[in-house]
């Protein structure tokens, strides 16, 4: 389908890092069922480095591809570097997304941050709350 780039289709048809990490150190879940996409990212973290990342996604082709690409981008990265990844970088890595699908890349960025936040919370590590998205009150879900 010409709707998506080859890279998007590749990551959709052959998603990397699908599944659940048992005893994950951080889990982030964003989106909601009503909107039609839920993204869940699991992290294995050691010495502030992401050793492994996996995802589960309920959503459209670009949501699955964005999750796949995002997990690829953060594996082996230090937490602060993973936190610096923006949705734009996800879009670029995918070779572009249709305008009305950009929110899928936003979800991917937020899922990463949400998983890192969960890790900090579990370990009792202090952080600046402003670094993290406030998923509950985001515009995307309130529009529905």
């Amino acid at each position: 389908m010409a709707l998506y780039t080859e890279t998007v289709m590749d990551h959709f048809m052959h998603p990397r890092n699908v599944g659940e990490i048992e005893n994950a150190d951080g889990i982030g879940e964003v989106g909601n069922a009503k909107c039609g996409d839920i993204m869940k990212i699991y992290l294995k973290i050691q010495d502030d480095v992401i050793q492994d990342a996996k995802f589960e996604t309920f959503g459209c082709g670009s949501a699955i591809a964005s999750s796949s690409m995002a997990t690829e981008m953060i594996k082996g990265k230090r937490l602060e570097d993973a936190m610096a990844i923006t949705n734009k970088q996800v879009v670029e890595a995918l070779g572009g997304l249709p305008t009305h699908k950009i929110h899928c890349s936003v979800l991917a960025e937020e899922a990463i941050k949400s998983a890192v936040k969960d890790y900090y919370d579990r370990r009792g590590i202090a952080y600046d709350a402003k670094q993290f998205p406030d998923c509950e009150n985001c515009e995307g879900c309130r529009m529905v």
Binding site: M1, M9, F12, M13, C35, G36, D37, F58, G59, C60, G61, A63, I64, K101
Partner: peptide
């Protein structure tokens, strides 16, 4: 599950269908 991803996978198997999902 979500309809668009369902359609894309079916399309990859040669099946043309449609869905009422938001996407």
């Amino acid at each position: 599950i979500e309809g668009e991803s369902l359609l894309l996978l079916l399309d990859s198997k040669g099946i043309c269908a449609s869905s009422g999902s938001a996407c």
